[in-house]
Amino acid sequence: MIFITGGVRSGKSSFAEQLAKEKARKLGGTLHYLATGVASDQEMAKRIARHQQEREESEWPWRTWEQSTGIEVVAEFFTSKDIVLLDCVTTLLNNELFSQQEWNPQVLTRLLQGIEKIQDHCAELILVSNEVLWEGINHGNKLVLEYSRMIGNLHQTLVARSEKAYLVEAGIPIVMKEEMV
């Protein structure tokens, strides 16, 4: 598993796609794009459509899956040669949290199980996530604090489970973790 994070517009998604293509070329498998974004307004819908079109037109075609919650249901469609790119983890967590009536901390465990299941079915899972923990000053707001704790714990677990972790800054990927194979 590969974990990629970065700020908004840091170039993390482009880097992830490029990495996925290289992997697919080596393995001869299919590229899958697991989109977690829900189009909440027109601008978002346009952006999703643009990204999708770009992927369809690329020399290495992608198969797109749209799954805003419960990603494990698509796991069985992947084979051991396939590369799956999930973009992005924070959106998925938000969707899982807000699809429920009540704030449920069990969401993290379920989300991690979903990721594990996909990992088991494909050759390589590439995760894209967002850097959101730099505010720090909001300690007065309990909900923000609890949300930050969840994101932090989730990222820590994912980095621990990944062979490689990258932080993308202004388009430049910085290797934060690299396990020797």
């Binding site: 923990l133 704790r149 994101i151 932090g152």
Partner: peptide
């Protein structure tokens, strides 16, 4: 490091 990055754990 940032909040909830695992500083205490480390």
């Amino acid at each position: 490091g940032g909040a909830f990055n695992g500083k205490a754990k480390w």
